[in-house]
Design a protein around this nucleic acid. Structure first.
Length: 424
RNA sequence: GGAGAAAUGGCCGAGAGGUCGAAGGCACUCCCCUGCUAAGGGAGCAUGCGCCCAAAAGCGCAUCGAGGGUUCGAAUCCCUCUUUCUCCGCCA
């Protein structure tokens, strides 16, 4: 949610910045509703003030034992009038809020302008893709050949397309990756480990911005009469821990790391990445979430990217860092860096992490604040980033560490977790 | 699943239809006192929103778990829901 004062006072500038995110702000709609809101709110509040003062008078007269019939007569009928005024106001306020809930966050000044991924800017490249002296296989062939370590047929039987089973050493490698990442962040990067619910209510999903606009991307279920959703990322559950909180300034920042499964319907992705583990309905991710001081959030974003990079560096996987352009950024993000890992079978880099500063966009929705030195309550900034997507990390390790005989060398840092140095 | 109790400001906790946005305490901020180790005195201290507006001040509205209702008037009465706690049952 954007600051409504910013919209009222600097509308043209806001609209121009939203255009960078491919959002066409409806100025006429907003201004029209805003004008009605103002009129109706004033009218309603005047009636309320009238009622309040009359009631107060009645109270005073009664306590003195005096007659109240005159003032009671004055106030007759006010209730009905007030009820109507409130209904009118609520109607317009709801329309206004519903529209504002669909408006994305503003991009930071430093974000490159552009409509799609072709305008993204590569920041750096780390590591050199390995030269294979044999024909590389993809992770599906490698995995299947290793005692059905990756099994899509079983996944399809049980749950349908875009689900898979992992088995044996591949399943263990997957677990090792998650363990390693979580340990790295908690032991080296100062993150606090979190275990979170895997379902969230509609309010939480609104808080982080998945609702109301992106419901079709979610798996929805019921709890009694209430809608519940499987989390598409633990960004949702972990960020919403801060909902309604008021922190002391020196408590900030909070840095949370959470390993969780993520559930995405991938509606609109039919035909894309249909082979392999790249795009699944369920995948694991180690997520980093920061609840940060607003003056330090962009600094925190750089640090978070470093933390994600450290995972790839430790695994010795070649990757590059991309700054997303405005048009390619997510709904709530003010700035996003993607990390892309080298995938030999596709001869390209594929996204394995996305780190974003959401500034106060989510904080305003969830009312997460802190008290500053002057005693003013200010919204915190929230950040989140993958550190990393475990399924895609598995793909990258399998493919980058493959040997001519179809075996997979275990990256050094994972050996303590695996208890072996080769999978064959 | 059954029975009961509760939900108030950053925290604890009073308030049981009228001048209550809410006593008191803790925490916090400022001042005074005191040369010393969470000692004393004083003052301040909820949030959101609107109007006005350069801004401040000011005025107003809303908020005592959430949503409805009764009433001229609701933290207080009624209904629904949510959450927490206690006891019983069940259970990974």
């Amino acid at each position: 949610m954007l600051d409504t004062n910013l919209l009222r006072n600097d509308l043209d500038n806001v609209a121009a910045r939203l255009a960078i995110k491919k959002f066409n702000f409806n100025k006429e709609l907003f201004l029209g509703l805003e004008e009605q809101r103002k009129t109706l709110q004033i009218k309603m509040e005047e009636l309320q003030a009238k009622r309040n003062s009359a009631s107060k008078q009645i109270g005073i007269l009664k306590s003195k034992g005096e007659d109240t019939s005159v003032i009671m007569a004055e106030v007759a009928g006010l209730g009905e009038e007030l009820k109507n005024a409130e209904a009118e106001f609520n109607d317009v306020a709801t329309q206004l809020n519903n529209y504002l809930a669909t408006v994305p966050n503003l991009p930071d000044e430093s974000v490159p302008v552009g409509l799609d991924e072709t305008a993204n800017v590569e920041v750096r490249r780390v590591g050199v893709p390995r030269d294979f002296d044999f024909q590389v296989k993809d992770h599906v062939d490698l995995g299947v050949d290793l005692d059905r370590g990756v099994d899509f047929e079983a996944g399809a039987k049980v749950a349908g397309s875009r689900f898979a089973f992992l088995r044996g050493k591949i399943a263990k490698l997957h677990r090792a990756l998650a363990q390693f990442m979580l340990n790295l962040h908690t032991e080296e990067h100062g993150y606090t480990e979190i275990y979170s619910p895997y379902m969230a209510n509609a309010k939480a999903l609104f808080g982080t911005g998945q609702l109301p606009k992106f419901e079709e991307d979610l798996f929805k279920t019921k709890r009694g009469d209430d809608d519940m959703y499987l989390i598409p990322t633990s960004e949702v559950s972990v960020t919403n821990m801060a909902a309604g909180d008021l922190y002391k300034e020196d408590e900030l920042p909070f840095k949370f790391a959470c390993h969780s499964p993520c559930f995405r319907s991938e509606a609109g992705a039919y035909g894309r990445d249909t082979k392999g583990l790249i795009r699944m309905h369920q995948f694991d991710k180690v997520e980093m979430v920061n609840i940060a001081h607003p003056d330090k959030s962009f600094e925190a974003l750089e640090q978070m990217v470093q933390c994600a990079e450290n995972v790839l560096k430790a695994l010795k996987l070649p990757y590059r860092v991309i700054t997303l352009c405005g048009g390619d950024m997510g709904f709530g993000a003010a700035k996003t860096y993607d990390l892309e890992v080298w995938v030999p079978s596709q001869n390209t880099y594929r996204e394995i992490s996305s780190c974003s500063n959401m500034t106060d966009f989510q904080a305003r929705r969830i009312q997460a604040r802190f008290k500053d030195a002057n005693g003013k309550n200010r919204l915190v900034h929230t950040l989140n980033g993958s550190g990393l997507a475990v399924g895609r990390a598995l793909v990258a390790v399998i493919e980058n560490y493959q040997n001519a005989d179809g075996s997979i060398t275990v990256p050094e840092v994972l050996r303590p977790y695996m208890g072996c140095d080769i999978i064959k």
